[in-house]
């Protein structure tokens, strides 16, 4: 059994090693898998902030992931075709700079999280689950109907954006960029969780009344956490566009929200990097089962059910001692 710190270190180094091995034996596909794990891991860790620590089961996190994706893709798309967007005060020409597109994605998903959160957090329990789902479904149908940016067929951006003078098309380079984002997000989340704010948030999950009697405002606490979570999920969405050079309404669908929840519970909610382990297990299972059998989804389902029934603390519960 490990302490949580050692566990986090092993997980992160493990992913890095996996992609290095891919580089050494010249299997770029390994690197792509590792990149996918890192990006979905970032989104999962962000969801975990409100789900595992704040007790808010958001069934609409695909919304922030998808909004981040679409914002980044639209900016890249305009920078490529040279057509500008008229924004009343100025014309926006799009951008092919990763940093700028990430920034846009984070700002937009923060805004969405602020609006959706301020309404949803008034409800709780199953109603919270359903209202977050409702908002995500609205953005989903909106993207399906928005034919200017591909509608149902999605939007291709063809090339990866630029970051400084790095060749982002090389798989290992792009992996390292995503990996750096993961480390950054990990530090931020670790800091948030262990701050006073984080303790109050955990307090809201355990007993809201008590927090009120301590003179705190659970609504503001939860909303702040919701916005932080939405922003980071948006960043993951932007990275995902760079990985695939493509975005479609699927990234806004309820199945995506469901998969993000799966990552969190599979890995173990309420632990900083639990969802990252969840992403590793989920993507490797998908990959491994897909090679062994055509009906891999069936076996994935069976494994998930067994994990829920017999490992309530998730896979990370097997390695970490409390």
């Amino acid at each position: 059994m490990l302490t949580e710190k050692k566990f986090n270190l092993i997980i992160v180094l493990g992913i890095f090693a996996f992609s290095l091995i891919g580089y050494v034996i010249n299997e770029p596909y390994f690197i792509t898998l590792a990149t996918k794990i890192v990006i979905l891991g970032i989104a999962g860790c962000a969801l975990n902030l409100i789900l595992g620590f704040g007790g808010m089961v958001s069934f609409g996190h695909a919304m922030f992931f998808g909004v981040g994706s679409y914002v980044a893709a639209i900016s890249a798309f305009h920078s490529m075709n040279g057509e500008s967007i008229n924004l009343i005060f100025f014309d926006f020409n799009g951008s092919n700079q990763m940093l700028f597109n990430w920034f846009l994605a984070v700002i937009f998903s923060m805004f969405f999280a602020l609006v959706v959160g301020s309404i949803s957090i008034r409800t709780s329990g199953v109603y919270f689950i359903m209202i977050t789902l409702a908002f995500a479904q609205m953005t989903y149908y909106f993207s399906v109907g928005w034919t200017k940016y591909g509608g149902e067929d999605g939007l291709s951006t063809y090339v990866r954006n630029d970051l400084f003078s790095i060749n982002t098309m090389l798989p290992l380079n792009f992996f390292i960029i995503c990996f750096a984002c993961l480390c950054f997000v990990g530090f931020i989340l670790n800091w948030v969780i262990n701050s006073n704010f984080g303790n109050f948030l955990k307090g809201c999950k355990e007993n809201e009344e008590k927090m009120i009697s301590l003179g705190l405002n659970p609504y503001t606490l939860k909303l702040t956490a919701f916005v932080i979570s939405g922003a980071i999920t948006g960043l993951a969405g932007a990275l995902y566009v760079d990985l695939n050079r493509f975005v479609s309404p699927t990234s806004l669908s309820w199945q995506t929200s469901g998969e993000l929840i799966v990552l969190v519970i599979l890995g173990g909610s309420g632990r900083l990097f639990g969802p990252l382990l969840g992403a590793i297990v989920f993507i490797l299972l998908e990959q491994f089962l897909g090679e062994v059998t055509e009906n891999w989804q069936f076996w994935l389902g069976v494994i998930l059910v067994l994990i829920v029934l017999y490992f309530p603390k998730g896979v990370s519960g097997l390695f970490i001692k409390d």
Binding site: I129, V262, L266, Q297, G301, V302, L304, V308, L309
Partner: peptide, 23 residues
Amino acid sequence: RDHLDQVLATFALILIFSEAIRY
């Protein structure tokens, strides 16, 4: 169990049923 486990387990059941029917 809490709602979270229910969501995950029944989500997994969807995968099982859909794949079984497809098979």
